Amino acid sequence: RQGFVPAAYVKKLDSGTGKELVLALYDYQEKSPREVTMKKGDILTLLNSTNKDWWKVEVN
């Protein structure tokens, strides 16, 4: 499932696989259909980080 999360809630990881991955630093509950819920410690695939406030991710 793809959607947006606050950029301040995730940290980029060095995956070494060519995929950009991020680590969820905090729990986040989606507040609109365009967002996704994540739990602290989740590893997500980063799809787009051009917006400084909201990053598009895919929940694996």
Rank of each mutant, 00 (worst) to 15 (best):
R1Y: 07
R1E: 04
R1N: 06
Q2V: 13
Q2M: 09
Q2H: 08
G3H: 02
G3N: 01
G3W: 05
G3D: 00
F4K: 03
F4P: 00
F4S: 03
F4C: 11
V5M: 01
V5A: 03
A7I: 03
A7G: 04
A7H: 03
A7M: 05
A8I: 11
A8T: 11
A8E: 09
A8H: 11
A8S: 14
Y9F: 13
Y9G: 05
Y9V: 05
Y9L: 12
V10I: 07
V10R: 01
V10H: 01
K11C: 15
K11Y: 09
K11S: 10
K12A: 07
K12Y: 08
K12E: 05
K12I: 11
L13P: 02
L13W: 08
L13S: 03
L13C: 13
L13F: 11
D14T: 14
S15D: 12
S15I: 12
G16Y: 12
G16P: 15
T17Y: 14
T17Q: 14
T17M: 13
T17E: 13
T17G: 15
G18T: 11
G18R: 10
K19E: 11
K19H: 12
K19F: 10
E20S: 14
E20A: 14
L21G: 03
L21I: 09
L21C: 10
V22F: 07
L23C: 09
L23T: 07
L23P: 00
L23I: 15
L23F: 08
L23G: 03
A24P: 00
A24T: 04
L25K: 06
L25R: 04
L25S: 02
Y26M: 13
Y26R: 15
D27G: 06
D27Y: 05
D27P: 06
D27Q: 03
Y28M: 01
Y28P: 00
Y28C: 02
Y28D: 00
Y28N: 01
Q29N: 13
Q29R: 11
E30C: 14
E30H: 10
K31I: 06
K31N: 09
K31H: 09
K31A: 10
S32M: 07
S32C: 09
S32Y: 06
P33C: 11
P33R: 08
P33G: 08
P33I: 09
R34W: 15
R34I: 11
R34C: 15
R34L: 14
R34Q: 12
R34S: 13
E35G: 10
E35D: 05
E35L: 05
E35A: 06
E35W: 04
V36R: 02
V36L: 15
V36G: 02
T37W: 04
T37C: 07
T37E: 03
M38Q: 01
M38W: 02
K39R: 13
K39T: 09
K40R: 12
K40V: 08
G41A: 03
G41W: 06
G41L: 03
D42P: 01
D42Q: 15
D42T: 06
D42S: 07
I43W: 04
I43P: 02
I43H: 04
I43D: 00
I43A: 02
I43F: 05
T45I: 15
T45K: 12
T45Q: 10
T45H: 11
L46M: 03
L46C: 05
L47G: 01
L47F: 03
N48D: 15
S49Q: 10
S49R: 09
T50S: 15
T50A: 11
N51D: 14
N51P: 05
K52E: 10
K52F: 09
K52M: 11
K52R: 13
K52G: 09
K52T: 11
K52W: 07
K52A: 12
K52L: 10
D53S: 12
D53G: 08
D53L: 15
D53H: 15
D53E: 12
W54K: 02
W55E: 01
W55V: 06
W55Y: 07
W55R: 01
W55D: 00
K56C: 14
K56I: 13
K56P: 01
K56E: 13
K56A: 08
V57I: 06
E58F: 05
E58V: 08
E58K: 08
V59L: 12
V59R: 12
V59W: 08
V59E: 09
N60S: 13
N60P: 15
N60F: 14
N60A: 13
